[in-house]
Design a protein around this nucleic acid. Sequence first.
DNA 1: GGTACGAATGATAATCATTATCGTTATCAT
DNA 2: ATGATAACGATAATGATTATCATTCGTACC
Lengths: 127, 127
Amino acid sequence: MLRLTQHRQSILDLINASNRHWDADEVSRALSDAGQAVGIATVYRGLAALEAAGLLDSIQLADKKRYERADKAHHDHMICTECGHIEEFIHETIEALQLSAAKERGFVLTGHQLTMFGRCKSCDKQE
Amino acid sequence: MLRLTQHRQSILDLINASNRHWDADEVSRALSDAGQAVGIATVYRGLAALEAAGLLDSIQLADKKRYERADKAHHDHMICTECGHIEEFIHETIEALQLSAAKERGFVLTGHQLTMFGRCKSCDKQE
DNA sequence: GGTACGAATGATAATCATTATCGTTATCAT
DNA sequence: ATGATAACGATAATGATTATCATTCGTACC
Ligand SMILES: [Mn+2]
Ligand SMILES: [Mn+2]
Ligand SMILES: [Zn+2]
Ligand SMILES: [Zn+2]
């Protein structure tokens, strides 16, 4: 179903080559800088299509959605409210407890997002 | 610092009298229906001020922010993607594990949000 | 009671991320 | 090559939230 066009391949390659969490505008700018400008609407559509195909993951932040590689194990995020640093963490026990909490309530889980906010190690030192 | 004006008191009373998670527009409409119309900008400002004062809690969803009473114990949410039902749950172990996961990384936590998505018991039966 | 000043209000414009539209173009199967 | 279908790009539209700014309110002080 998914047509992996040149544009979509560029988007995917860009994100797969990094460990960042990209928003649509950052992707658009990076592609422009690389001489592969793509219309912003196409970036939005491409990101959504790639995620639907399981080739990208995303996290929904308060103001915008950010995309990242999907070839890593599932993880959650810790975000520094000072510098914006996003740290990833995997916690199997928390994952398992979520599943059982859902099951107890007759909820069939399709996804979840755990985001923690605070000050990262280096920002906390400075103040 | 916070002036608990008539308008803000109305907003607070409305939310405190319920167990729902309200968005700004719903608050505005409910106040209008009750004959206490308040400008939508005032609703937004009131909600933000009440939350800053600790009198309301909120959850950030993909498209909008929803406010709820703050006089309940901290809890997280399970949201049915079929019917929109929001179920609350408290899980002390998950809370504790989050704290230690943060500490391990030198992160000083200021908040977190755990949202699970899926189908609730009744929606799951039907299909 | 009258004054003064900062905060709150309301109407509305502005912002910003995202989606919709629509004419054009690329892709793929036959 | 042809035709059907999906993708693209420019741009308008949407929707939640915030900014502006003139007016009004609340309160501390005389
Ligand atoms: Mn990540
Ligand atoms: Mn709640
Ligand atoms: Zn930091
Ligand atoms: Zn449901």
